[in-house]
Each structure stands twice: as structure tokens, then as C-alpha cells.
Design a protein around this nucleic acid. Structure first.
Lengths: 154, 154
DNA sequence: TAAGATAGTGGGTAGTTGTGGGTAACTTTC
DNA sequence: GAAAGTTACCCACAACTACCCACTATCTTA
């Protein structure tokens, strides 16, 4: 276990090639596969982006999901949405992954992508949609945000 | 653990070379890497400067971020904003670090830099922008400043 | 004051990284 | 079962990064 295992930070601008392959930033590769040789999961993000999640984190989430009571309709919907678009995958010798077409469509990605490290997972965005999302967030009521910021002393 | 571990004070005038490398004042180097072999983090500062942060301090923040639930949109936005401009790095044999182009642009740095010790982190400025910032602060309403002053015994 | 150590700056080179394309294996379809 | 389409693996290359060495100025110490 090294420093920053499974900790993803930073934003990167990459592109998808004709075969639907995206490069994973070299700095992410080690963390993505720690303790689970190159295996990870891709699924829909909460926002209009793609999540790339290390196997360990994914399995933790699966456990949490399994603890939700199926009596609640909200829970059922939530569980369903988390799992139905998910699939496991690995990268090729160059460190690239091939993303399922369905996910690319969901995230509105064609050529350029923005990759963001979100600590324990990775987000892949269409840069335009990301910018749009940023813009919308400026208009949010910021009390909750300020509360968060107040707790983080940096 | 020695005296002044992770405590940065003083201002230094250095320059950036053609490769984007900045020297870290020798007096800062030990503190920057205490307990975590030469690793630290760079990111955007609140003002128009670059933060250089010791690993221990940054990792604490990362841990807090990793405990925020991604189900909340505010949390996602917050995490994204905290990590986007950040990257980890180490110094070379000469004690220099290479700053990402994006950060240099943000801070408006081309050649000369002012490096300021801010107790638990380091700020890197374009000297002109720093001077401008100082000038603007003269005009601030000073009530809040006086409040602070009341708390600091010197 | 002289000699050695430390600090700041500059540049070359080998390895890494991001990207493109070819070919074989596999799957699907008729 | 053969053709067409898809996927996965392999190789290639340009740009970039990190590592190494070198030089000078300043500080320390005997």
C-alpha cells in the first residue's frame, strides 16, 4: 500500500479514438488496480458522466446496497439504477479502456473527454456538458456548500 | 519530529526556468516532506496564487472528502472543485518541483515568483500580482481584521 | 582567509505517456 | 458453415517528463 492508494485527484483532457478507447491518466492506473490487478467497474454517474470505479470501492458499494431494504420503492429504484448500467473491465497494454457505447451515449461523449479524479472514483465527461454543469452549480443556493467549505481547513 | 515541522515562514524571490521548474527554499524542503518522503500536493489558492501543501495535511482533507456521500449533488460539486486543479508531486535531486502549466496560467506566472511561507502550506505568486493584492487589501473594511487581531497575541 | 559544503540555476538524455493503426481471434448473422 | 462485423492484442511513433550531471554563487567552518 503506497501513498494515495485509490485516491484520484486532478483534471485531464484526453480524447477517444475511433475504436472507442480512452486513455486513463498514468497517475490513476496504479490506484485503479491496487490489490485487484487491473480490474474495475464502469457505470453511469449521478451527473451526466461516466464513473470508473476500482474493484475494492465497487464491492464496498455493493455491500451497502445489499443492506438497503427492498421494501422501500425508492431503494429498489436506486439499487436498480446503480447496477443495471454497470460492467467490469480492464485496460489494454497502453493503459486504455474501451467504454460501452451505451455509456458514451448517456454521457454525450463523441471525441473529447474531461477526466476528473473524485478521490475514490473517476468521472469521464463531455467537456461541454461539464462546463454547462459547472455553470448551473454557480446558481445553487450555497449555504450547504459553505458549510462544507467551513469544515475543510486548507 | 523536529521543531518547525510543517511550519513555513518567510518570503523568498525565485525564478522559474524554461521547463516550468521552481526551486523550493531549502528551509522548506524538510518540512514539506516530513513523514512522507518528498511527496506533497499543488493546487489553486483562494487568491490568485498556487498552494503547495504537505502530504499529511492534504491527505487529511482527502479523507474528509472520501467520507462525503456522492448521492448529494452539493457534495459532488464540492469534491470536484477541491480536486480538479490538484496534483501530487515530488522534487528532483536539486530540490525543485515542476508546476503544471494550468496552475502557472491561473497564477499568471511566467518567470519571477515570490514564495511565501503560510505556516502549514506554501504560496507561490507572480510578484506583481502579489503587490497588487497587497494594495487592494489596504482598502478593505478593517472590522474583521481587527476581530482577528484581538485573537492573536503577539 | 582559504577550503569545503550548500544552494540556486541551466541543460542533455533516456524513459514514460498519449495516440494511431494493423492483424488475429472471436462473435454474430445469413 | 462462410461472410461480415466486432473485439482484443500487438506494434509504432511523437511529445513530454523525470532523472542525471554541470556550473556558479553564497554560506560555513576551521
Amino acid at each position: 500500500m503506497t501513498l494515495s492508494a485509490n485516491r484520484f485527484i486532478g483534471e485531464y483532457a484526453y480524447s477517444i479514438d475511433a475504436k472507442g478507447r480512452v486513455n486513463i491518466p498514468a497517475r490513476f492506473r496504479q490506484a485503479l488496480s491496487v490489490e485487484n490487478e487491473g480490474t474495475f467497474f464502469t457505470t453511469r454517474g449521478f451527473d451526466r458522466c461516466i464513473y470508473v470505479i476500482p474493484a475494492i470501492i465497487w464491492m464496498d458499494m455493493e455491500t451497502e446496497l445489499s443492506n438497503l431494504s427492498s421494501v422501500s420503492g425508492i431503494n429498489r429504484t436506486f439499487i436498480r439504477n446503480q447496477t443495471r448500467h454497470a460492467s467490469s473491465s480492464t485496460y489494454d497494454k497502453q493503459g486504455r479502456i474501451t467504454l460501452p457505447t451505451s455509456l458514451l451515449e448517456y454521457a454525450g461523449i463523441d471525441k473529447e473527454v474531461a477526466i476528473i479524479g473524485m478521490i475514490n472514483k473517476i468521472e469521464i465527461w463531455n467537456p461541454d456538458i461539464l462546463a454547462e454543469n459547472d455553470q448551473n452549480n454557480l446558481n445553487l443556493d450555497s449555504n450547504a456548500y459553505d458549510d462544507l467549505a467551513g469544515k475543510i481547513i486548507l
